[in-house]
Each structure stands twice: as structure tokens, then as C-alpha cells.
Amino acid sequence: MSEGRTHLEIARARSGLGGGAPDAGRIRTAVEAIPDPELPVVTIGDLGMVHRVEVDPGAIRVTILPTFIGCPALELIRDAVVEGLTDFGRPVTVTTSFETPWTSERISAAGRAALLAAGIAPPADPDDVRCPYCASARVVMDSAFGPTQCRSLFYCRECRQPFEAMKPV
């Protein structure tokens, strides 16, 4: 980074680090706060996608667990992580790993609540899916496949509203 020095100074001034030990906790928090590009109501932290954040004085390495292997949003997430960590003034590398498989159980309670508020039923066994609008259990799966790899299509017979649900994986 050509303006690295300036950046570093700005970052230090903002973070109050003054060139001391890198603040791994704050960096991790910054990574986890990045919104998911396809579902901006939740962060990649809420989704449980942040596997590892390794920080040393010369570099930041972030390892992401893809929700789906071919998820096209991964490129956008990588760019967002790099951009979101600019203020820390260190080169950032983002890699993916399948070492621990991402499962829908990794979504936090806050993430599930945010999905529900946005009209997307959080992951559940198809029999346990409830309408995100009226909470009715009178719902049917229209298609296991939806607009993105991680979502299915449902219909609520109570309020006659089509809705999406995150797939349990």
C-alpha cells in the first residue's frame, strides 16, 4: 500500500493504539460487523461465517466459512472485509476454509431475529417453519430452491403471503 504510512498513522490516531500491540479483539469485531451482501440485515458475524482472525503487526489474515461452496457473494464479502479493515493500516488477506463446515446452526440468536424481522424465516426443519409475517404454522414449501443457494420458497395459507426461509444445512 503506497499510502501505508499515512494510513497507519490515521488508524492509530483513530484507534488510540499509538503503535502498540495490535488490537485483535477490535479487528475481529470490525470483521463480524460487515453486512452480508445478499442479506444486508444480517452481518457475517451473525451468520457465523467468521472462522479465524489472525492479527500480527505486519498483517491481518481472515478465514471465512462459506455458507454454500459456490456462493457468488463470497467475492463481495472478501472485498468488504478488506475495505472494512482499511483503518487498521495493515495488509489484509481473506481466505475460505471448509475445515469446519458452515452449518445453519452457526447463525446467532441476533441473526435469526434480524432475518425474521426482514421477512425471512430462520433455518428450521420444514415442519417447524412459521410464517415470518403472521407466525402461522399453516405453511407449505413451494420449492426447496429459492433466489439464492441458501433460501427456500414457502407460502402461508393463513395470511396468503409467499415468503422465503433459510435452508437448514
Binding site: 454454500f68 461452496i69 459456490g70 413451494d142 426447496a144 430452491f145 429459492g146 420458497l153
Partner: peptide, 20 residues
């Protein structure tokens, strides 16, 4: 229509596996 979506989604999965 649901199968348009399903086949597209299946394709996206399989191409993702191929890429990995």
C-alpha cells in the same frame, strides 16, 4: 417456474463444487 429456479440453483451448487 419452480424448476427453473431449482435447476439454476442446482447448477450453481455443482459449479461451485467444480470450482473448489
Amino acid at each position: 417456474l419452480e424448476e427453473d429456479v431449482a435447476m439454476s440453483s442446482l447448477a450453481q451448487d455443482e459449479l461451485g463444487h467444480a470450482a473448489a
